[in-house]
Each structure stands twice: as C-alpha cells, then as structure tokens.
Computed example of a mutant assay.
Amino acid sequence: MPQITVDHSKSISFDREGFAHDLHTALVEIAAAKPEACKTQFRASEVTAFGYEDPADHGHAVVHVMIGLLVGRTEETKAKLTETVLELLRKHVEDDGHAVLHASAEVRDLDASYRKFER
C-alpha cells in the first residue's frame, strides 16, 4: 500500500520516473505512506479512442491515475492527493501543442479483502 496504477495513451511524452518519484513523495507527505510501500505501475495504451475521432489522428490523449489506500484517510486527504496528482501530471506530461490531454485521478479505499506478500 499504496497501490498506484497509471493508464495512459502511448502517444504522449511522459516523464514516468519523475512522476513516480514526485507522487511517492506526495503520498508520504499527504497520506503518511511509507516510501518503501509506494508502488506504481504504468500501462501505456496503444490506442486511445475519443468520440468519433479516428484514433490514428492522435488528437486526444488520456492519463488516468488510480491510487488505492488502506482505509482511514479522510475525504480531505483524498481530495488533496487527487489535486496533487493533477498538478504533477501538468509537470510531467509534455504539452505537444497538438493533442488535447484528458487527465484524471482518483483515490479509493482498498477493499477489506486486500492482502499482499513479499519475497
């Protein structure tokens, strides 16, 4: 915990390493996460479809960040995290002047069934 997944259009120029570092720092500061517990997976999508637009035009790009935390954070803390994520995306996703970037973030509580192991 936290479990972080970043889905994004492959067509964007995205400093993923810098984003992950800054996001992990924010999670420690805002949500009292332990640095060694922060884990981020990036999933680049080959195709991003938007409305009726031809995906080959690459006129739109998407980044969605999902953060799963153990239960106990306030709604204010979650809102602060999502706003911070959006600020970090502005910093780490290059504006190519062509594609419209649709960026979003959400923080959710991990289900009570959440378990993990390490080896």
Rank of each mutant, 00 (worst) to 15 (best):
P2I: 09
P2G: 11
I4Q: 00
V6E: 07
V6M: 08
D7N: 15
S9K: 07
S9M: 12
K10R: 05
I12D: 00
I12E: 02
S13P: 04
F14L: 00
F14R: 03
D15Q: 01
R16N: 03
G18T: 12
F19A: 10
A20Y: 05
H21M: 09
D22C: 01
D22E: 14
D22M: 06
L23G: 04
L23I: 07
H24Y: 04
H24K: 06
H24A: 04
H24P: 02
T25W: 08
L27S: 09
E29Q: 15
A33F: 06
K34S: 07
K34W: 00
K34Y: 00
K34A: 10
P35E: 04
E36G: 10
K39W: 12
T40Q: 04
Q41T: 05
F42Y: 14
R43G: 04
R43L: 13
A44D: 12
A44E: 14
A44V: 05
S45W: 15
V47L: 09
T48H: 12
T48A: 11
T48C: 11
A49N: 11
F50L: 13
G51S: 13
E53S: 02
D54E: 12
D54Q: 11
A56L: 10
D57V: 07
D57R: 06
H58R: 12
H58E: 00
A61I: 03
A61H: 02
V62L: 14
V63K: 02
H64E: 06
H64S: 11
M66S: 13
M66P: 07
I67N: 01
I67S: 00
I67Y: 02
G68P: 00
L69A: 10
L70C: 12
G72P: 05
G72N: 07
T74N: 01
T74P: 03
T74G: 04
E75K: 15
E75F: 11
E76H: 03
T77N: 06
A79T: 15
A79C: 08
A79F: 06
K80S: 14
K80W: 05
L81K: 07
L81V: 13
T82W: 10
T84D: 00
T84A: 06
V85S: 06
L86W: 00
E87T: 06
E87F: 01
L88H: 03
L89F: 14
L89N: 06
L89C: 05
K91E: 15
K91F: 10
K91G: 03
H92Y: 07
H92E: 06
D95E: 04
D95S: 04
G97R: 03
G97V: 04
H98N: 15
H98I: 15
V100F: 02
H102Y: 14
H102M: 15
S104R: 04
V107C: 11
R108W: 08
D109T: 15
L110Y: 05
L110I: 02
L110R: 00
L110C: 01
A112Q: 02
S113A: 15
Y114I: 10
R115W: 13
K116S: 03
K116G: 03
K116L: 01
F117W: 05
E118R: 02
E118D: 08
